[in-house]
Amino acid sequence: MRRNLLTLTILILILFLSVLSKNLDPYIYQILVFFGINSILAVSLNLINGFTGQFSIGHAGFMAAGGYFSAALSVYQGEKLLNILSFLPKDLAQGAIFLVFLILGGLFSAILGLIIGIPTLRLKGDYLAIATLGFGEIIRVAILNLDVVGGPRGFPGIPKLTDITWVTFWAFIAVVVIYRIINSSHGRAIISIREDETASESMGINTTYYKVLAFSIGAFFAGIAGGLFAHYLMMLHPSSFTFMRSVEILLMIVLGGLGSITGSIFGAFILTVLPEALRGFAHLRLIIYSLTLIIMMLVRPSGLIGNREISFYRIFKFLRRKGIN
């Protein structure tokens, strides 16, 4: 019942947004799109860092891989496929192709995650962080030297297919998939790795398998986010996927709360909106931004939400308790 209520609310929200977006101020619209994309990135990174407890800072690399892959498919194969599917209504054909390309981009990222994860996930803590950072940079530098996707000139001419409905849809999928994983017996295994890896291995849990699994699923959604990002901006450049981008995603989950899905979304919201809200302060903007982060970490070191979740059920319970007293 609770879950049905949530699904219904989200569906209504998607519908509402797609109708509303026609009259929305383009500036607000863009912020909302980036908020959605950032939510996908934050939730997927939280699966790796917050729930599995593996400190990865190479998320921008996976985002780049998926983004470039699906963008290249769109640019080089999109027209051809559209002609083949010409018997379908154009919007439907376009949408179906976009969906497939996004998923392929995600899968490409997931495979990269698998290849990178198997050797590096033997490392722990700081060492893993440095290794994933290195791999993220390798992906970026590889793209920088790939002429098919424009190399250092950037990759223009990507069709604009992403809109707020797509972004909301994928954010919803990411949240549901990761929520379902976390609340299954696989999720218990994943969380026990974070709690104590040796002990969880003694319980008979194949820790390497679960770490690589979480890493690949995280990479998959980062790839999807990259694809959405590419088809929104219509142009990709390797400089969008530097180390700073990975840090930004990491900030979202640390700020929102490691090990909380709602926390990640909250963190994504704040880190998307805050820089925009501070535009009025011109050159003081970055200082205020940094100060806000420092203060938040001092006041709430476990993140805004910690490792709890906010749900309708909890809100109802809270309100009822208030009502009785």
Partner: peptide
Amino acid sequence: RVFPNMTVKENLEMGAYL
């Protein structure tokens, strides 16, 4: 080496993972 952020019951259930 118990799992600190899980409840007592959840810890026991982890023991019965297999």
